[in-house]
Design a binder for these strands. Structure first.
Lengths: 162, 162
DNA sequence: GGCTCACGGACAAAAGTTATCCGAGTTGGG
DNA sequence: CCCAACTCGGATAACTTTTGTCCGTGAGCC
């Protein structure tokens, strides 16, 4: 799995805390990651329709739907793509005992097992939303820090406290 | 996921049909794949203890346990490794609102969700054994072909029928 | 003792990932 | 109405990981 998935998830949780759009540079500064590379992940989120980008002086990124309507799977598929990890190469149709193609209407057993596992994985990720992540984070982070974060998102660039 | 997983699974199903050891070259010929690369996958299976290699003139590979005692997950982990796909880089400990390390005893919510999904995936693969794959294949392949395969495994190199 | 076979590491090629830059478009103010 | 600053977006390059191949070494059978 791409490492950008983690960044994208953190960005979504942060965006859900802000009413106004947040520029990519600010998201990168908040998470202390490479701005140029994070921009790429945000573009993927935008292309997937999870976030909307606004240009101009007070532009930035914002979620297109409520955090309760965005699942972790949505974000993972936006970054890593929706293709399953396993791809059957039809080994059964090769070699001296090859099964003729006309008998290969259904996917082979191995592919079925892999698809089933892939479905279980996706189901598990689909069951959690960005709102769930935020709620769980709020249970751990002190309320004061949350308020400081909101202020930091609204205000200009702030020098981190010593 | 590595493409060698598919080959390894096919090899295991084939090995379960043979009482005698099968050389790597023969396994490669049966599946019509690169012998040099398949040898590498077989080494991984051997290192994981799933197959035993016998050297000498009538040597080859054989399963160490009954096919009912080898799960698909065993093979997948032997080839691809047992490490989870997602690795948390502790983004929460970075940036202006970093959470202090002493408060990070439990893994962050995102890592928990990913681990849970990974567990669901592995559970699904663990539920199927090599014997299940063979049983399902026998339901599709004509009995005559199965017998021809057994004969091919016993005998020397056979020219495929026209 | 000669032959065949499996093992292991070393080595090259390919793909995917990570990282960076510069141009196009938009907003807001003068 | 024009200018300037700020934003995203796509194209481009370096790196790491994976994939694939090869040959030398050691061990067992005839």
């Amino acid at each position: 799995m791409s490492g950008g998935v983690e960044w994208a998830l953190h960005c979504c949780t942060l965006l859900s805390r802000s009413a106004e759009p947040v520029p990519a540079v600010k998201l990168a500064e908040f998470h202390d990651v490479s701005p140029s590379y994070l921009a790429k992940q945000l573009q993927l989120l935008s292309r997937a329709g999870l976030v909307r980008s606004a240009q101009g002086n007070s532009g930035g990124y914002a979620l297109t739907r409520a955090a309760t309507q965005i699942t972790v799977l949505d974000v993972v598929e936006a970054i890593d793509g929706a293709l399953p990890a396993f791809r059957c190469t039809e080994v059964r149709q090769r070699g001296p005992m090859a099964t003729p193609a006309e008998r290969c209407t259904a996917p082979c057993t191995i592919a079925q097992v892999m698809d089933s596992a892939d479905r279980a994985w996706r189901d598990s990720l689909r069951a959690v939303t960005i709102a769930d992540l935020v709620a769980d984070a709020d249970r751990v982070i002190p309320p004061e820090t949350i308020e400081r974060t909101r202020a930091w998102l609204r205000g200009g660039t702030v020098v981190p406290g010593t």
